[in-house]
Simulated assay, not measured.
Amino acid sequence: MMLLSKGWILKTLAFAILVGSIMEILERSGAIESFVKYMTLKRSIVKSPRSALVITYMIGVLIFIESSITSLIAGAVGKPLCDREGVSRAKLAYVCDSTSAPICSLLLFNGWGALLLGLIITQVESGIIHGNSVEFLIDAVVFNFYSMSALAVTFAVIFFGLYTKGMQNSTVHEYKLKNNDLKNANIWQMLVPILFLVLSIFAFLFITGNGDILKGSGSSSIFYTTLTTMVFMFIFYVLFGRMRAREYMIASVKGANKLFPIAMILLFAFAIGEVTSELKTGLYLASFASENINVSFLAAVIFVLSGIIAFSTGTSWGTFSIMIPIAVPMAVALDANIPLIIGAVISGGVFGDHCSPISDTTIISSLASGCDVVEHVNTQLPYALLSALIAIVFFIIASL
């Protein structure tokens, strides 16, 4: 009950359920069918499994304002195209997950940047470090090696088809067009609601941040955005005669029912994260690792430690909040490169978040792609570990 008293958790759960309604309305209205016809038959923009995933990857990189919205839009656009081209949902979920958090942690014109800047400002104001907080953050982004390697590895996997056996054998959902009539084939029936959704997230971040997008509430914004998008879709589809009101209501309820179990998984994930936070798991691990660390390996150790905490708690933001107040004083005491250490915390938080089955971004990426959560975690893990290994090598080189 204590968990459900937290507004951000309720809003995130509502967001997860409303995503199902949005997806079902897009399907029932014929918007997805129209979009697929335009992309595959009329314009031949998507004509291979690779091109379907490349488009998903590009959407994930271009929409960096909020990781949940990034996954949602990439999944909504990519799912019908990937189904049409015989690409498994596990591959799609991997691309959605491996672009959302990494790009949001590199292009910090969002809530990620606001949180990290706030944590660094606290270290400056307490006198632990001296300098400009913004400069520390900008310099730290240069050392966010995991996010960079994750994006690079994901693109290489798509372009060269470097799939593991598990990913190669993952389930494919076939998408069959009802007919090949191209008269109504266009992208706008689907893209107009999605563009409205993108603009709405900016608007609500601005409103909840009292005029400052960087200070906006992510959980409130994604909830209000999906709610407003539902209203807009009613106007766009029902009032303009693209579907009947009764069909809209049936689709809304059916879509919500489909994703209700996912929302429950998300709730249990939050509960497990709360337990590990209450047990001070992160503080224990940090104090245990802080003894006898060689400065040459400090960044790599901080990265691994942050990854373990993020994996255990299912939250990268919580990991940042735990680790930056611990890692920065360690860096000062050992005369290490402070931006490098902050970059290691950011990288570790994103890495652990990627691997964790109780992470909200993992679950939302699975939700948006229509992929089983366990299948997504198992098939993504080898690529996350490869990206982490590359990051560790770079952290050691940078330390030396």
Score class of each variant (00 low, 15 high):
8 W>N: 14
12 T>G: 13
20 G>L: 09
21 S>Y: 11
22 I>L: 15
24 E>D: 14
36 V>P: 02
43 R>D: 01
43 R>Y: 02
52 A>H: 09
56 T>P: 10
60 G>K: 02
69 I>Q: 14
76 A>Q: 13
77 V>M: 12
80 P>E: 07
85 E>K: 13
94 Y>L: 15
95 V>T: 06
96 C>P: 03
106 L>C: 05
107 L>T: 00
117 L>R: 10
122 T>C: 06
132 N>F: 06
132 N>Y: 05
133 S>F: 00
139 D>S: 15
145 F>C: 03
155 F>I: 08
160 F>C: 11
166 G>F: 08
168 Q>D: 15
169 N>Y: 10
173 H>D: 13
174 E>K: 15
174 E>P: 04
177 L>N: 06
181 D>S: 13
184 N>C: 06
190 M>S: 12
199 L>E: 11
202 F>M: 10
204 F>W: 12
205 L>E: 10
226 T>F: 15
226 T>C: 13
234 F>R: 04
236 F>G: 04
250 I>N: 14
263 A>I: 04
263 A>E: 02
268 F>T: 12
270 F>H: 08
272 I>Y: 13
274 E>A: 13
277 S>T: 14
281 T>Q: 00
285 L>S: 00
288 F>H: 06
289 A>Y: 07
293 I>S: 01
295 V>C: 06
295 V>F: 07
301 V>G: 00
302 I>E: 01
303 F>L: 01
303 F>H: 01
306 S>R: 02
307 G>E: 00
329 P>L: 07
332 V>E: 10
335 D>H: 15
335 D>A: 15
338 I>G: 08
341 I>D: 01
346 I>C: 06
347 S>F: 03
347 S>P: 03
348 G>C: 02
349 G>L: 03
353 D>N: 12
355 C>W: 04
356 S>P: 06
358 I>C: 07
366 S>E: 07
367 L>A: 09
375 E>G: 07
377 V>M: 09
378 N>D: 11
380 Q>C: 09
384 A>I: 09
385 L>A: 10
387 S>V: 05
388 A>W: 03
393 V>P: 06
397 I>F: 14
